[in-house]
């Protein structure tokens, strides 16, 4: 049994080496398929990061009337915090708001001067509410609109931002759904192309398979080397596709950071390289082996 396994592996490697051009052609097709996958994974990460970044920018702010007591505001903060839709509620006091404002405009002499002349704090205290999910802002706004402490509000920003928030929600939804459809579609094509390439490679040895049967080889002994060859294709293709992607990612990473500030693509790529290699190999090897089994089966009927 062990000697058979050894021979099967030996013949798999031998066939891979001797088939030269055919091996190269098959390998490059699988590399292309895997590159599509890698591209999809990177695309996925980029859209996710971009979407998260956008989501983070959305919030609802409640500005309180200038005479609203701080205790009441803190009570409202507490009660809002208990809502399931709410992720966080930050309190910005009037003093704090002034500090931030001053800091922001410290280089602007006209503003600093007018603030000093004013001699009082014109800014309002506010609560910044972030929702767990962008689609929940509408619910939160609705809740605020019906609340009995509404009389203390000077203004709620949702009304002004509603259009933008809704549009962002739609864009996020389309990006997620579209990305998924694209991934499924391209993955399907990659699988099909790889499968057919391996099938063609094995088609070219259909006579050999018949001869092996006539010489008394068992089906597993015939199939084995082709499966081994498929596994070699899969593994090498995984390594090669990562080898090709690495310099590309390294090169475009700084440009990506310009668009998506929090994204360091190169760092992401290098820290996930083992996992990527694992999944790529798994995919390549699985596809190579399964395609070989299916393709050989057809010619084993002698």
């Amino acid at each position: 049994m062990l000697i058979n396994l050894f021979r099967i592996i030996k013949y798999g490697f031998l066939a891979f080496r001797r088939n030269g051009w055919l091996s190269t052609a098959t390998l490059s097709i699988i590399v292309l398929a895997l590159l599509v996958f890698e591209g999809l994974m990177i695309f996925n990460v980029l859209t996710k990061t971009a979407v998260n970044l956008l989501e983070d920018k959305i919030d609802i702010s409640i500005y309180f009337k200038i005479d609203a007591p701080e205790d009441d505001i803190l009570n409202i903060q507490k009660s809002l915090g208990t809502l399931t839709e709410v992720k966080s509620v930050d309190y910005v006091s009037r003093d704090r708001a002034l500090e931030v404002f001053k800091e922001k405009h410290k280089d602007d002499a006209a503003i600093s001067q007018s603030l000093e002349e004013l001699n009082a704090n014109p800014l309002l205290a506010s609560l910044n509410i972030k929702a767990n999910d962008p689609s929940e802002y509408a619910t939160i706004a609705d809740y605020l609109d019906k609340a009995d402490f509404k009389t203390m509000f000077e203004k709620v920003t949702y009304a002004q931002n509603a259009v933008v928030i809704n549009r962002l929600n739609k864009i996020i939804g389309v990006a997620e759904k579209g990305g998924f459809v694209l991934i499924v579609f391209l993955a399907f094509i990659a699988v099909l192309v790889t499968f057919n390439t391996i099938r063609l490679a094995i088609y070219s040895s259909r006579d050999e398979i018949g001869i092996m049967r006539l010489v008394g080889a068992s089906n597993s002994f015939i199939r084995g080397p082709y499966v081994v060859e498929g596994i070699i294709y899969g593994f090498l293709a995984a390594v090669l596709s990562i080898g090709i992607t690495a310099p590309i990612v390294y090169f475009i990473s700084p440009y990506i950071s310009v668009f998506i500030a929090d994204m360091n693509l190169w760092k992401y790529f290098t820290s996930n390289i083992i996992g990527t290699l694992f999944y790529q190999s798994l995919f390549g090897i699985g596809l190579g082996a399964v395609s070989s089994v299916i393709a050989v089966r057809k010619y084993l009927k002698v």
């Binding site: 000697i3 058979n4 021979r7 092996m212 010489v215 008394g216 080889a217 068992s218 002994f221």
Partner: peptide, 11 residues
């Protein structure tokens, strides 16, 4: 050799 190998004969 293939004919011997398929019969599982030793090296």
């Amino acid at each position: 050799a293939f004919a011997l190998e398929v019969a599982g004969r030793p090296q």
